[in-house]
């Protein structure tokens, strides 16, 4: 048992209680309790349609929950807008690329950096202040391995590079919590290894939650795993416990990797 990896006594960075989300008659997520500790690496697994991405959308504020409460750094954020959550240090990526395809890599990162600044609704703005933000955007491009690609239009990047950029966008908000939605989906084996390394090298003070279909990536990166099925959390434990769990085997491990869900 690696209880030390998830100290129950420390206040969690993220605490979900009784979270539910319905779409009409469909209960995409129901009654989810989740505690994620500071600096923890958490993977959320589950078959397609288990409600993983919906849970992410509820945490990041893209959808409000139908029921339940969310606390982040001990503060209740249940009804806060996504941007306000980003300002509090929540960064996320999207499973289906939601980048600005017609803009350059640098502009994408710049927009992510500018978005968490205050007072950006200015049609005419001094370039001086802007320079710092541009520098930060270029730094981010470097940290996610897109050096030299800053001026390239995102639409002409490879799929793998777009995933890297997504990670860069999530990091732009100086997150204390980063949520990655299937970062490895659609990547080649080599790219997966590179991405896993990128995640393993991440600043240990950043808490990480990732949804991942690829068990190799998920179980290498994660310290704890939450298994979802039909909108509920069915098992939670260390990667070893998950590997050993019969329910998980029945539900999931036999299945191939799919990119949707």
């Amino acid at each position: 048992m690696t209880e030390a990896a998830a100290p129950e006594h420390a206040a969690p960075i993220l605490r979900l209680r009784g979270i539910g989300r319905r779409f009409g008659g469909l209960h995409a997520v129901r009654d989810v309790d989740l505690d994620v500790a500071h600096g923890e690496r958490r993977a959320i697994l589950g078959p397609n349609g288990a409600g993983k991405t919906t849970l992410f959308n509820v945490i990041s504020g893209d959808f409000p929950p139908s029921s339940g409460t969310i606390e982040f750094h001990g503060e209740e954020i249940t009804t806060l807008a996504p941007a306000a959550r980003a300002r509090l240090g929540m960064g996320r990526t999207y499973q289906k690329s939601r980048l600005f395809l017609g803009l350059s890599v640098e502009d994408n990162l710049y927009l992510a950096v500018l978005g968490v600044q205050k007072g950006h609704l200015r049609p005419i703005r001094l370039r001086r202040r802007d320079g710092e933000l541009r520098d930060r955007a270029r730094d981010l491009a470097r940290t996610v391995g897109l050096e030299g690609r800053e001026k390239t239009l995102v639409g002409s990047l490879s799929h793998g590079e777009q995933r890297q950029l997504e990670v860069g966008m999530a990091r732009a908000v100086n997150p204390t919590l980063m949520m990655l939605d299937e970062p490895a989906s659609g990547l080649s084996r080599g790219e997966r290894v590179a991405l896993t390394d990128l995640l393993l090298q991440l600043d240990p003070s950043i808490t990480l939650i990732l949804i991942e279909h690829d068990m190799d990536v998920a179980l290498r990166v994660a310290e704890r795993v939450t298994m979802m099925h039909d909108g509920r959390v069915i098992v939670e434990g260390t990667p070893d416990e998950i590997r050993a769990n019969q329910t998980v085997h029945d539900l999931y491990l036999g299945r191939g990797n799919r990119n949707d869900g």
Partner: peptide, 9 residues
């Protein structure tokens, strides 16, 4: 300007 950039976004 950054405003124009956001508009494009």
């Amino acid at each position: 300007s950054p405003f124009g950039q956001v508009l494009k976004a």
